[in-house]
Simulated scan of single mutants.
Amino acid sequence: MAQVLKRFFDLIVSSGAILLLCLPLFLIALAVRLESSGPALYWSKRVGRRGRIFLMPKFRSMRTDTPVVATHLLEDPDRYLTRLGRQLRRSSLDELPQLYSVLVGDMSLVGPRPALFNQRDLIELRRENGVDQLRPGITGWAQINGRDELPIGEKVAFDVEYLRRRSFTFDLKILFLTAWRVITAHGVSH
């Protein structure tokens, strides 16, 4: 029953947010296209529930020639960021297209952040701890407790804690804390 309630909540919030944010989403997409060549959206290969690969959209914040690795693995991430991309990331507006992934069921509002397809160490550690059974989220317990700065072992420890503690009220707490972190740009490194 809890999973049905969570999915229903995801559907209501994501569809409502998409409708409410139609104009801002369009304007951001237009601004991305006007600033640099290439598509407005970047479709990233991510690992979802039970190891299934899906394409996750984000507003493109980097140049089209950026290597396909996690941002923290780039030698000089700032070299690849566009001016607008820097602002989109700081405000987390680049994440808004992921509402589509929530709507179609690839993601949830709250869950472990989906790993890139080539983050084998993270994927394996999550599988060993049963975290791969969860639908990945736009935000999660690890996100609000360190975001990109967390080493993989700590990130998975937070994911395991979320797996044990998950509930509708815990999800609401995580959403509230995420909103606070976004407003204050807490933990944003690129």
Rank of each mutant, 00 (worst) to 15 (best):
P151Y: 12
P151N: 15
E154W: 00
L150M: 06
I138Y: 02
F158H: 15
Y162Q: 10
T139G: 05
T139E: 11
G146F: 03
P136D: 01
G137F: 06
P136N: 01
A142W: 05
D148S: 15
E154S: 03
Y162W: 10
D148R: 15
T139M: 10
R135L: 09
P151W: 13
A157H: 08
W141M: 06
A142D: 04
G140K: 11
A157D: 13
E149M: 09
P151V: 14
A157P: 05
V156Y: 13
T139A: 09
E149W: 00
G153S: 12
Q143I: 12
L150G: 06
A157F: 03
G137A: 08
K155A: 04
L134V: 05
I144L: 08
F158C: 06
V156M: 11
G140P: 09
I144Y: 04
V156N: 12
V160T: 13
L134D: 05
R147Y: 03
T139N: 11
L163R: 15
D159G: 07
R147G: 01
D159Y: 06
D159I: 02
E149P: 00
P151K: 11
E149N: 13
T139F: 09
V156I: 08
A142L: 03
W141G: 02
E149A: 15
T139H: 09
G140H: 12
Q143V: 10
E161Q: 15
K155M: 07
D148E: 14
V160G: 07
E161A: 14
G140F: 10
G137N: 08
W141R: 02
I138W: 02
R147I: 01
G137R: 07
R135K: 12
A142H: 06
E161W: 04
G137V: 07
E154C: 00
V156H: 11
Q143F: 12
G153A: 14
G137L: 05
P136S: 00
P151R: 11
G146I: 03
F158Y: 15
A142E: 05
E149C: 06
Q143L: 12
A157Q: 14
G153D: 14
K155Q: 14
L163N: 13
R147A: 01
T139Q: 08
I144M: 04
P136R: 00
Q143Y: 12
I138S: 02
V160A: 09
K155S: 08
G137Q: 06
I152N: 07
